[in-house]
Design a protein around this nucleic acid. Structure first.
Lengths: 106, 106
DNA sequence: ACATCTTATAAGTAGTTACTTATGTATCAG
DNA sequence: CTGATACATAAGTAACTACTTATAAGATGT
């Protein structure tokens, strides 16, 4: 079924990975900068970033020997869209959110 | 860390479980009614429902020998809150959503 | 070319997950 | 109480995850 939503949910289901994403919302960062903030090795960070990338949540660009990661502009859209579709059923006050989400460009 | 968000993300990260939740947004349903819609056994459905319940996404009530499941009214709030916190960084047009989310009762 | 720095990939592993079948528990009808 | 129905729990297992260390690959400076 909806493979994209699944990948986004699974990617953010890991605390380390979610923390990495949250860090990247502040701004672009290199792998080495991200390593050290967490108690896992550099390969682990690279692997987590690969998963976030596979989910469309982050993008990368080279800068010399470093690789800078940043959040993807449309990365959270599957998640926001999913919530928009289903939360109307349990919380009427947020009915407006669906409209707002639909105003988003694809 | 934020255990609750993790549980919600992980619960919805499984396609079968997400489909179960989506079915429940339409209305209350018994386990037997949910089994059969999916290609997994009844115990598997019960286990998935237990995970959804552990994430605070669904609730249950007995009706005779059946057990009816329904979506929890505040279940998606951790997810909506998380999105509200972070999507402002990548999509300004949805800045209003943060306000809307903050209007939600706790 | 060489040494160094930075990140990615390979290979192995302990722990977790999603499923199965078998069994237990609760409710109801007769 | 007995048997049937509806669901939950137990136990086992193949597949997947998140991590490690070791190594490869890419870029830069000398």
């Amino acid at each position: 079924m909806n493979q994209r939503e699944t990948r986004v949910f699974r990617a953010l289901g890991d605390p380390t990975r979610r923390a990495l994403f949250e860090r990247l919302t502040v701004g672009e960062a290199a792998v080495g900068e991200l390593t050290g903030r967490f108690r896992v090795s550099q390969p682990a960070i690279s692997q987590h970033l690969a998963v976030l990338r596979g989910a469309g949540l982050v993008e990368q660009r080279r800068d010399g020997r470093r690789v800078l990661y940043r959040v993807s502009r449309a990365g959270l859209q599957p998640l926001a869209g999913w919530i928009g579709r289903y939360q109307a059923f349990w919380l009427d006050r947020l009915g407006r959110m669906k409209q707002i989400l639909e105003e988003m460009e694809p």
